[in-house]
Amino acid sequence: MTFNEKELVTGCKQRNRIAQKQLYDVFGGKLFAICLRYTKNRADAEDVLQDAFIKIYENIDSFRADSPLEYWLRSVVVNTALNHLRQQKYLKELDDIDVHHNGLSDREFTLGNFQMQQLMEMIRELPPGCQTIFNLYAIEGYQHNEIAQMLGISEGTSKSQYSRARTLLQQKLNKEKRFDDGSVQHKQF
């Protein structure tokens, strides 16, 4: 990719529209994928992306060059997505849930056979709380205590919601695998 990150940031700080567009062109795709992961439908994802870019352009002055630009952009998008979810009341009732491990073996776990779109869809099908916490913990790499602080929930809730998400995803993966094997005759709807 041929772009000078420093020049791009300087241009955006000067509110230069060409630089702003270039920033969008360079990072828009990755950031949109994040939005899709945190929301339930494309329209919401587009709204989050819009809001996030407006925030990025407005707060670009606060960006310090000591950290990578992409890292900063991702954090703005994640925060915007969380705000959006709060507004939608998705994160209102996040309770501690009992999770019993279903005993599904994940010893030979691999996602190599799955398309990115399939995985994305699986995450989006999770219950909203599980979806958010899975994204924050597994993909973004936040710790449970950080997630608890971000979402205003207990650390236990974060852990149990994550376990739930993990179990549900594991079930989905196994189900998809079985269909791939052809061992199950009729797909259940």
């Binding site: 702003q20 795709g29 992961r37 994305m120």
Partner: peptide, 28 residues
């Protein structure tokens, strides 16, 4: 489990529709 998911999705990218940039520009 987490590494696999992270590897699969952290670099994921999907082109947003053109209307998004148009809306951003309008808001700017």
């Amino acid at each position: 489990f987490e590494d696999q998911w992270r590897k699969a999705l952290q670099e994921a990218s999907e082109t947003p529709p053109p209307s998004v940039w148009e809306s951003i520009e309008a808001r700017l």
